[in-house]
């Protein structure tokens, strides 16, 4: 499926280090490679500190790359780019932030928060048009135009996140980087926001890069998932494939951590702890390679053979079940 789709964003060999001048530069992201196709929801999953947000911010060009390139629609957007390209990219890639309370300007009313992007790019004909656009954006996310003279602190967390979404949507972007958009929200409103994001995606033909640590949420929203551990992408696969045939031990560990609302499944379940240091590091250096079409795993040739055997066994088991 992946070959006949248009690649919207591709990340090539990206390394991101912090404290570069210091004695111990910290490599937050190590050699990340992935493509995002137009119209899909691509999820980046991993524990906290694994570098998922760093990748998201690198795409937004907040974090500088120390190695590698990022291409958007075939055009390089990392490093120094021309002013027109810069504006083009800002318009086409928007971000939804993790903490809706921290990401809105408390001293500006909702009208300004939402129309900030419009002002910057002058995306309106006149005042009337701008207000109409703001009203439309607020209605799209389920808020009322009457809310626009209010200030962010007067809203609930879910409503604030909707404002954050409206602010991104009004720019009519092609790609949205959603950096854990629901992890700061109440469980009761998470579904609302997720459904809203899905609805907007269908209506506007958006592409999402969804960053999360919660696999159950990711399963619900995404088409493809990349699992990242300590700055390294260890497995990329389509959602159902990943949940059915997890190969990398870290993915297995992550999947085993998802709580099930059924005590009969939950009780005998053993949580698999993944410990990088206990792995067999013998043999050549592992790389991210394709084991099935669209299913990539971080392994060397020896591990590849193990995974292949495991995968065939799993497939056999499924065939016999049927």
């Amino acid at each position: 499926m992946s070959n006949n789709k248009e690649v919207l964003l591709s990340v090539r060999g990206v390394d991101i280090s912090f404290d570069k001048g210091g004695k111990k530069p910290f490599r937050a992201v190590k050699n990340a490679n992935f493509d995002i196709y137009r119209g899909e929801t691509f999820s980046l999953v991993g524990e906290s500190g694994s570098g998922k947000t760093t990748i998201g911010r690198a795409i937004m060009r907040i974090n500088e790359l120390s190695k590698g390139e990022i291409y958007f629609k075939g055009k390089k957007i990392s490093g120094k780019i021309s002013k027109e390209d810069d504006r083009e990219v800002i318009r086409s890639i928007q971000m939804i932030f993790q903490d809706p309370a921290a990401s809105l300007n408390e001293r500006a009313n909702i009208e300004y928060c939402v129309s900030e992007g419009l002002y910057n790019f002058h995306l309106y004909k006149d005042e009337k048009d701008r207000i109409a656009k703001v009203d439309k954006a607020l209605e799209d996310v389920g808020l009322l135009p009457e809310h626009k003279s209010r200030y962010p602190h007067e809203f609930s967390g879910g409503q604030r996140q909707r404002v954050g979404i409206a602010r991104a949507m009004i720019m009519e972007p092609e790609l949205i980087v959603a950096d854990e958009p629901i992890s700061a929200l109440d469980v009761s409103i998470r579904a609302q926001v997720l459904n809203l994001m899905n609805k907007l995606k269908e209506e506007k033909g958006l592409t999402y890069l969804f960053i999360a640590h919660d696999l159950s949420v990711v399963r619900f929203i995404s088409d493809r998932i990349a699992v990242i551990h300590l700055g390294r992408i260890v497995e990329i696969a389509e959602t159902e494939e990943l949940f059915k045939h997890p190969l990398h031990p870290y993915t297995i560990s992550l999947l085993s951590a998802v709580p099930m609302p059924d005590p009969q499944i939950e009780k005998p379940k053993k949580h698999v702890v993944y410990d990088e240091s206990k792995r067999d590091h013998s043999g050549e250096k592992p790389i991210l390679q394709e084991i099935r079409p669209g299913h990539l795993v971080f392994a060397n040739d020896r591990e590849m053979k193990e995974y292949e055997a495991k995968l065939q066994e799993m497939e056999k088991l499924e065939a016999s079940d049927k």
Partner: peptide
């Protein structure tokens, strides 16, 4: 974060 957000909006 809200300043980063403004930056992402091209402010």
């Amino acid at each position: 974060e809200y300043n980063l957000a403004s930056k992402c909006l091209g402010t």
